[in-house]
Design a protein around this nucleic acid. Structure first.
Length: 606
RNA sequence: GCCGACGUAGCUCAGUGGUAGAGCAAUGGUUUCGUAAACCAUUGGCCGGGAGUUCGAAUCUCCCCGUCGGCUCCA
């Protein structure tokens, strides 16, 4: 994302005027300098590359002498030295020096990266700006805080190996990340935010709520869904199917493996081989591949017979499981896996139909996402990748413009992702912001002229002539696994009622009364009749308080406690605890069931 | 794949060269209590896997598998 972009030009050239009040960005950039100064102190001979302020903090990249790598214990040493330097209130002093003089100076200091950065500046840059902080000198156009005494609320957070200039073919440098704030309170608040985000991490909630797991025996990036997770997933799929049925989609099914030829024709083996599992070879020498995408199979369904213009748009939908070889270091919970199920569809239509289809598709997409409680979106338009792309540039332009037009009709921010398209076509991604402001890529909609050509697809138009259809690839959840994980984090485990695996916990005050238990069982049966999912806490001998606590920890949205008094009163009233709002209310069982049923049928988000 | 940190009971973790521990969970019992943790007892482990060093390895070394934080990638 943009916060990682390192702009060398911003590190040198014309100095920037200091604003009257330092901003958080200036504090962080100054903290980066302070950290580099500390690293040079602690590791004499260390070379420093670039060190910008980023969202929530800063980093600096280093090359340590003798090929040394940072280890975790170094973090504390660096931070301690930073605090020492901060306490000295060393001034940040700017100088503007001639270019050649700067090169001589950094040459004398053996700072190869700085020399390289200066050499990359445009020829007409005659002077550069440097900043001194005591002994430490950095090429930088500033501005900075007046002195290091401003840098009290700092913390060194983590280390990383990073490729020089962000290219995996280059040498790997050592990066140190830190965070900096105006005050210690803000720093504490930030650390607290990190902790809160950790608590809603879907990997943690998945285990706590018994939703899914990643057995080592199966392999990295290959999740299994437990009964409760499977139920949520089924509810998601059921609703998606219903919407697709209403949306004019046809349902298809395709196998998980295929002979290699299919992926030769599609171009996947040429362009996507890195993302595919290695082939299985059969006795006769035939190679079979696990499919990384469903499109070629849907194309074969289209091509199984001659198509008429009357059939178009033909929308083929499938929850299609695909397998992608993701590098070991990138696998992450449910959001980056090696086996996933896409809510995948391919729309075959005539060129004239494309625009209408894209517009209605975008509506359909946003509507579905909103039904799952995601409401804050922006769109991203990804254009032709410079190197990895098939097909004529003109066709890419037509497709890109069609997507742009469909997107612009909306009241949503549209950002450009230059060169981020698939190898076969440009795409629109729907990005959603979650409850704590993070953005996630959700749906993708891709226009494709290539596959119809590669697979020689046709339909007969109203004059009896053969025409080539165009294809739209689209996945709205993206992958069900990923969407599941995002929803889980968005709701911090508190699914909306219609998705909650257990909607209402029925808790006896004391479980030794057959009367009470019978009452609870009949209430559960009444709920079940209305399609509601209630659980009865039948553990023997637990205290009611413990049962309530357990129900809340399991994120069961409603808890009803029932004891002798309720049964003896005979008025049908019970006390309901609304866990998500943390309120209690007396309500009749009939009303309770009606209310829950209404909340479910309206798919209320909370 | 790369850099770093890790892997001990279902979960969270302690144990750093001398035959493995706590809390929670689970199981059994006692208790029957009105809205977030009753009490007692019991069970539970090839210390991720393999090889090596050592009289002796959870502990040291190497290789593999997996997890976590980044990087690269995410078509």
């Amino acid at each position: 994302m943009p916060d990682e972009i390192v702009d060398d030009a911003a590190e040198a050239g014309a100095p920037l005027p200091a604003p009257s009040e330092p901003t958080l960005e200036i504090v962080r950039h100054s903290a980066a300098h302070l950290m580099a100064a500390a690293v040079v102190d602690v590791f004499p001979g260390a070379q420093y590359d670039v060190g910008p302020a980023i969202e929530d903090g800063f980093f600096y990249n280093f090359r340590l002498p003798d090929g040394r790598h940072f280890v975790d214990d170094d973090l504390q040493r660096i931070e301690s030295r930073m605090h020492e330097l901060a306490a000295k209130k060393i001034a940040f002093v700017q100088e503007v020096v001639p270019r050649h003089q700067a090169i001589e100076m950094f040459t004398a200091m053996h700072q190869d990266f700085k020399i390289d950065i200066i050499n990359r500046l445009p020829e007409d840059v005659a002077t550069v700006s440097i900043y001194r902080t005591g002994e430490f000198v950095d090429l930088c156009r500033g501005p900075h805080v007046p002195d290091t005494g401003w840098l009290k609320a700092i913390r060194v957070l983590r280390i990383a190996g990073v490729y020089w200039r962000g290219d995996a073919r280059n040498e790997q440098l050592q990066r140190v990340y830190g965070t900096a704030w105006f005050t210690k309170d803000e720093l504490e608040a930030y650390m607290h935010r990190l902790e809160e985000a950790r608590k809603r991490d879907h990997r943690r909630l998945g285990a706590e709520l018994d939703l899914f797991s990643f057995p080592d025996e199966i392999g990295s990036g290959l999740p299994v869904f437990h009964p409760n997770g499977g139920l949520v997933r089924k509810l998601m799929e059921d609703y998606s199917r219903q919407r697709h049925e209403e949306g004019g989609y046809s349902f298809v099914n395709t196998p998980h493996i295929t002979k290699e030829d299919l992926f030769k024709v599609s171009g996947h083996l040429e362009w996507f081989a890195d993302g595919m599992f290695p082939p299985m070879e059969l006795d006769e020498g035939t190679k079979y591949y696990l499919k990384p995408m469903n499109c070629p199979m849907h194309i074969l369904i289209y091509r199984s017979r001659m198509r008429s213009y009357r059939e178009l748009p033909l929308r083929l939908f499938e929850f299609g499981s695909v397998y992608r070889y993701e590098k070991s270091g990138v696998i992450h919970g449910l959001t980056r896996v090696r086996g996933l199920t896409m809510d995948d569809a391919h729309i075959f239509c005539a060129r004239e139909q494309m625009m209408d289809e894209l517009i209605s598709l975008l509506d359909f997409t946003l509507g579905l996402l909103r039904d799952f409680g995601l409401t804050d979106f922006y769109l991203e338009l990804s254009t032709r990748p410079e190197h990895k792309a098939v097909g004529a540039v003109e066709e890419w332009e037509v497709a890109t413009n069609a997507l742009r037009q469909a997107a612009e009709g909306r009241n949503l921010e549209l950002v450009l992702d230059e060169g981020g398209g698939a190898f076969y076509g440009p795409k629109i991604s729907v990005q959603a912001r979650d409850a704590i402001g993070r953005t996630w890529q959700m749906s993708t909609i891709q226009v494709d002229f290539q596959f119809p050509q590669r697979f020689d697809l046709h339909f007969v138009d109203d004059t009896g002539a053969e025409q080539q259809p165009i294809m739209i690839h689209r996945a709205l959840f993206g992958s069900i696994e990923r969407f599941f994980g995002i929803l889980l984090e968005h709701y911090a485990g508190h699914f909306p009622l219609w998705l909650a695996p257990v909607q209402c916990a029925l808790v006896p005050v004391q479980d030794d009364s057959e009367e009470v238990m019978a009452y609870i069982r009949s209430l559960a049966a009444g709920m079940r009749e209305r399609g509601l999912r209630a659980s009865i806490d039948e553990r023997h001998g637990e205290r009611m308080q413990a049962r309530v606590r357990d129900a809340e920890l399991k994120r069961i949205p409603y808890v009803v406690v029932i004891g002798k008094r309720d049964v003896e009163r005979g008025d049908g009233m019970v006390r309901v605890r609304d866990v998500r709002r943390n309120v209690q209310e007396d309500v009749s069982t009939g009303d309770l069931i009606d209310r829950l049923a209404a909340e479910v049928s309206e798919r209320r988000p909370e």
